[in-house]
Every structure is written in structure tokens, then in C-alpha cells.
């Protein structure tokens, strides 16, 4: 069958794997965007910059504190999450009553500042970050070679996504969150501290981005520009999926990653644009997105 298509199974499964990995990052980032948008009504443009920051925290922790990969998985999201909560407290908070677009403009400015600072400090080229020793090597599956670390990234991100979904859709805390998304005033009247919940939600969304950054560090190099190129694709993913459903963003993220990977095998010229083309088609057929709700 593979001979018929003129494509080697190694290339096909290899790209499929890369697609799944990219999809894992699309899913984690669009999930964070959706959670933040649900409660804050802000499209977090600096999500990509914070993802990059997560990778850099891991890199710097290793260089200066000798903290390895595993502690970084906790430390980086906590540090970046705290930074995000500081941003929310000092800046984003003042914009909730204004047009949503101001949130986009502010976070765009923040993204420029964060990226500029890191580029000033570390230059534009990538810095290497090693794969943790416990996950080096790989498995020979017969039809392809599966590096252990890549398998771990897929499993870990799927786990994180599903855990987030569980917390939001199935726990009491998540119920508060969903209620506050629908009607913050009423939820506040029931004695729940909504402003604090907003801060924590933003911190959570940002921490997800930072975690994705740490997971990405050994695969892509750690570079100040790693976030900005990714975030635009993630925006397209968000438009395709619609921000109405958590599970929707996860499914859309992974699916589009795989589609992108397959395009690289069958028609490489279109691989960088295929997601945008799908977005255009979805807009024509179903403007609210595949899982979106009409407003």
C-alpha cells in the first residue's frame, strides 16, 4: 500500500508523530486561551510569550540552580503562573469593563515587551535543552522508531488536558468557574470571591502555557521567538474549534496537528498554510466554529 502511494512508512509515521506532538501543544495552548477567554473575556495575546517564558525558566533553572527537568515541570508553571497573576492584578483588571479588543491590544504590547527582553538577553538563536536521562532512547515498534521523550510529551499533555477538562466540567470549583463565566454578578452575590477566582484562572491558563513550554524545550530549541510563531497558528485553531467547549479545543488541537503532519507527507508546500485554509473553509460553512456556540 505504501509503495502504491510512493511514500515510505517511516516518513508517514514520522510525520504523524510530529503532527501529534504539535497537536499536543496546540491543544494545551488553545485550552488555556479558552479558559482565560471564558472568564476574563480577553484573548491572551501574550500566551505565546509566556509559553516561551516557561521554556526559559526551565533552561535558566538548569543553568544557574542545577534544577533538572522534573522539578522544572513544577517550578516553571508556578513561576510563570505567579508572573501572570501579577499581570492580571496590575493591568488586565482595569480593562474588564471596556471593549474586549483592549485586552487583545494590551496583551499584544506585553508580548512585545516580554519577547524583546528575552531577545535582548539571549539573542534570537535557539539554546539547546537536553532530554532528561530517564527518557532518552526509544522503542522500535517495527514500523517506526518512537523516541521515549516524544511518547512522554503526548501522554503528558493528553493527561494535563483531560485533567483540566475534569476540573472544569466535573468538580465544584469548576462549577463555580462555569457559573462565573455565565453571570459573574450573580455568583458574587452568592458569596464567592469572583475577582480572586479571575486572578487564579488567569494564573492557571498561563501555567498551562508555561508547562507546554517546558515540555517543548527538549524538542524544539529554547528561543525567544518560539512562542510568537506558534500563537498565530493556535489562534486559527481556536477559530476553527470555537471557544465554547473545553473538550472541543482538545480534540481540535490534536486533530489539526495530525492534519498538518499528514500534509507535510502528501503535499509539503502547503504544510505551513493548511491550518489557515481549513480555518477559511470552516468560516464559510460554520462561522461559529466546529464546537462553538452562537452568541
Amino acid at each position: 500500500m505504501f509503495e502504491l502511494l510512493g511514500i515510505s512508512p517511516q516518513a508517514l509515521f514520522g510525520q504523524l508523530l510530529i503532527g501529534l506532538i504539535n497537536g499536543a501543544f496546540y491543544a494545551m495552548l488553545s485550552l488555556g486561551l479558552a479558559v482565560i477567554f471564558g472568564l476574563l473575556n480577553i484573548i491572551n495575546f501574550c500566551h505565546g510569550a509566556l509559553y516561551m517564558m516557561g521554556a526559559f525558566v526551565a533552561y535558566l533553572a538548569l543553568q544557574h540552580l542545577g534544577l533538572g527537568y522534573w522539578p522544572s515541570l513544577i517550578v516553571a508553571p508556578v513561576v510563570v503562573g505567579a508572573f501572570g497573576m501579577m499581570l492580571e492584578r496590575t493591568m488586565l483588571r482595569h480593562l474588564y469593563k471596556l471593549d474586549h479588543i483592549y485586552g487583545l491590544l494590551l496583551t499584544f504590547g506585553l508580548a512585545l515587551v516580554i519577547e524583546g527582553v528575552f531577545r535582548n538577553e539571549f539573542g534570537a538563536s535557539g539554546l539547546p535543552y537536553g532530554i532528561p536521562p530517564t527518557l532518552s532512547g526509544g522503542q522500535n515498534l517495527g514500523f517506526m522508531f518512537l523516541p521515549n521523550y516524544r511518547a512522554w510529551v503526548i501522554v503528558a499533555s493528553l493527561g494535563v488536558c483531560l485533567a483540566t477538562w475534569y476540573v472544569i466540567e466535573r468538580t465544584k470549583l469548576g462549577a463555580y468557574l462555569r457559573a462565573a463565566t455565565e453571570n459573574p454578578t450573580l455568583v458574587q452575590a452568592f458569596g464567592i470571591n469572583v475577582p480572586r477566582m479571575i486572578t487564579l484562572t488567569y494564573g492557571l491558563g498561563v501555567a498551562l502555557a508555561a508547562l507546554a513550554g517546558v515540555l517543548a524545550a527538549p524538542i524544539y530549541q529554547v528561543s525567544p521567538l518560539m512562542g510568537s510563531n506558534l500563537i498565530i497558528v493556535v489562534f486559527a485553531v481556536v477559530v476553527i474549534g470555537g471557544m465554547g467547549s473545553i473538550l472541543g479545543s482538545i480534540v481540535t488541537g490534536f486533530t489539526l496537528g495530525v492534519v498538518e503532519g499528514l500534509t507535510k507527507v502528501f503535499y509539503p508546500e502547503a504544510s505551513s498554510t493548511v491550518i489557515f485554509i481549513i480555518m477559511a473553509i470552516v468560516l464559510l460553512i460554520r462561522p461559529t466554529g466546529l464546537f462553538g456556540r452562537a452568541h
Binding site: 491590544l105 494590551l106 504590547g109 506585553l110 512585545l112 515587551v113 524583546g116 531577545r119 535582548n120
Partner: peptide, 21 residues
């Protein structure tokens, strides 16, 4: 000044949105 231009632009963005719409 290199990437300071980007930083300066970002700061102007932030100030405009917060205080100077």
C-alpha cells in the same frame, strides 16, 4: 539599540491601553 525598539513599542502599547486610550 536593537530589540529595545520592540520593548519600547510594547511599553507604549501598554501605556496607551491603560491610561491613554
Amino acid at each position: 539599540l536593537g530589540s529595545w525598539v520592540t520593548i519600547a513599542q510594547g511599553v507604549v502599547f501598554v501605556i496607551c491601553v491603560l491610561a491613554f486610550r
